[in-house]
């Protein structure tokens, strides 16, 4: 970009340049742009380079997917939506059942007169340790999610 252009002119030329590259100039802007390009060699040079760049990117397209992929797209979304609900219900049910069975298991261990005290203590420590580990992992996950720097990106 020409050092002869003032900062405001540079900014204006950049805007016109983008519009020119994307063929979005109106007649007045076109006249203005032509003036820049005819008067300033650096502007002219940049215009040539941007045109080449546009040529290169214009010729690049993603390959299309087979029609059946699109035919099944909504079905897949629908199935995943439905399964999401199923997983929530399954998880709630599983948590309730596991908590209840855990409680019953602990209750029966404590109530069992034949089981040695040291074994009861070991089993309880094992269960207690597992619960603390689980809570710790869940808490860490929640904390990571809360402090995720990308979480609120341009919402």
């Amino acid at each position: 970009m020409s050092s002869q252009l003032k900062s405001a002119d540079k900014k204006h030329f950049q805007t016109l340049l983008m519009k020119a590259v994307d063929a979005e100039l109106n007649p007045d802007e076109q006249t203005e742009f032509d003036k820049f390009v005819s008067k300033d060699a650096d502007c002219r040079n940049e215009w040539q380079q941007m045109k080449k760049l546009k040529e290169v990117t214009k010729n690049m397209n993603f390959k299309s997917l087979p029609t059946e992929v699109w035919d099944n797209y909504w079905v897949n979304v629908y199935n995943r939506l439905e399964r999401g609900l199923a997983w929530i219900l399954f998880s709630i049910g599983a948590i309730i059942l596991l908590t209840y069975s855990g409680f019953k298991a602990v209750e029966s261990i404590i109530a069992d007169p034949q089981l040695a005290g040291i074994l009861k203590a070991a089993i309880l420590m094992l269960i207690g340790g597992s619960v603390i580990l689980l809570v710790s992992v869940v808490r860490e996950k929640l904390f990571t999610q809360k402090s995720d720097p990308y979480k609120e990106v341009q919402r």
Binding site: K11, Q14, T15, M18, K19, V21, Q49, M50, L53, T57
Partner: peptide
């Protein structure tokens, strides 16, 4: 949008 596009194209160029 225009300035981001300009900067992106400059970087790509």
């Amino acid at each position: 949008v225009m300035s981001r596009l300009y900067n992106a194209r400059q970087a790509l160029k």
